[in-house]
C-alpha cells in the first residue's frame, strides 16, 4: 500500500471537486439564486460602507480609498474560507443528527474528507467583487505595480485567509462539545464584518484582544500596512505569516480532537 501523501489528497480533492461542479450545474436555479444572494450581501456591505463615508470623510486618519483598500482586501481574504471550508456551517447539523459518524470510517484524514465534501462556488463572486474594489482603491492610491509588490500581496492575502479559516474552524468545532453551538458561528462570522476597519480605532486593551484572542485584525489591518503605511510596519505584520500558519494548525488540532471525542448521538 502506498503512503497517502499530499499528491494523493490533491488528486482526491480534484476529483471530488470536478464531480461536485458537474452536479451543481444541473441545479441551475439554486446556483443562480445563491449567486444573487452573494451579490446582494456584497452590495449591501458596500452600501453600509458608503453611507458611513458619505457622512464622515475619514476615520482616525484613514481616508476613503485606504478604507476601500481594507474592504476589498478583506473580501478577497475571506474567499478561501467561503469556498473551501463552507462545510463547517453544516457541522453542527451533522453532529446533532448523528450523521457525522459517516466521516469516521474512511482511511483518510477526517478533516480533509469532511471539508472536501463541499466546494462553495458562490465565494468566487465575492472574490471578483473584492478584486474590483481592491483594484479601484489600488489605482486611486497610486500604489503602482511591480513583481515584489504582487508577491507581497499574494503572501499577505494567503496569510489573512488562514486567520479567518482558523477562526471558523474553532467556532465550528465547538459543536463537538456544546449543543446548538450554531450561535457561536453566527456570532464569530459577524466579527469578520469588523475586520475591514483599522485596528487603531480600538483602545489598547481591545486592540490586544482583536490581535491575539479573536485575531480579526490580521484579516485586513496588519497585512494592509505593508502597502498603506510602508514606513511604519509593525513587527506583527512581518510575523503574521508564521502566526497564521501556527493559528491554523492549532485550529486544525482542536477540530480533530473534537472529531475524535465525537461519539455519535442517538442509537
Amino acid at each position: 500500500m502506498q503512503k497517502r501523501g499530499l499528491l494523493f489528497y490533491f488528486n482526491i480533492y480534484r476529483k471530488i471537486l470536478a464531480q461536485d461542479l458537474k452536479s451543481k450545474m444541473s441545479y441551475r436555479a439554486d446556483f443562480i439564486i445563491s449567486t444573487i444572494g452573494m451579490i446582494f450581501t456584497n452590495i449591501s456591505g458596500f452600501i453600509s460602507f458608503w453611507i458611513i463615508f458619505k457622512n464622515f470623510p475619514s476615520i482616525k486618519g484613514w481616508g476613503y480609498y485606504e478604507m476601500l483598500f481594507l474592504y476589498g482586501f478583506s473580501l478577497i481574504a475571506l474567499t478561501p474560507v467561503q469556498c473551501f471550508f463552507d462545510n463547517n456551517w453544516n457541522l453542527r447539523n451533522h453532529v446533532y443528527s448523528g450523521d457525522f459518524i459517516k466521516y469516521c470510517f474512511r482511511p483518510i484524514n477526517i478533516f480533509f474528507y469532511y471539508m472536501s465534501e463541499v466546494f462553495d462556488i458562490k465565494g468566487l463572486g465575492q472574490f471578483v467583487f473584492g478584486s474590483l474594489v481592491l483594484g479601484y482603491a489600488w489605482n486611486n492610491i497610486n500604489l503602482g505595480i511591480s513583481i515584489t509588490i504582487i508577491i507581497k500581496l499574494i503572501i499577505s492575502l494567503i496569510t489573512a485567509s488562514l486567520f479567518m479559516i482558523a477562526i471558523m474552524n474553532l467556532a465550528a468545532s465547538t459543536c463537538f462539545w456544546l449543543l446548538n453551538s450554531g450561535y457561536i458561528m453566527v456570532m464569530v462570522f459577524r466579527f469578520k464584518d469588523y475586520a475591514k476597519y483599522p485596528a487603531t480605532i480600538f483602545n489598547s486593551g481591545f486592540k490586544f484582544i482583536f490581535t491575539f484572542i479573536i485575531p480579526i485584525a490580521f484579516i485586513a489591518y496588519y497585512p494592509s500596512l505593508v502597502f498603506l503605511r510602508p514606513d511604519d510596519i509593525p513587527v506583527l505584520t512581518w510575523l503574521s505569516p508564521l502566526i497564521g500558519i501556527l493559528f491554523f494548525y492549532i485550529s486544525y488540532l482542536v477540530w480533530m480532537k473534537g472529531a475524535k471525542s465525537y461519539s455519535g448521538t442517538g442509537s
Binding site: Q19, K24, G98, K102, F105
Partner: peptide
C-alpha cells in the same frame, strides 16, 4: 460500514 437510512455516498453524485 453501512447504516440503514444514512447514506455515506456523495448525495449529489
Amino acid at each position: 460500514v453501512v447504516f440503514g437510512q444514512r447514506t455515506q455516498l456523495w448525495w449529489a453524485l
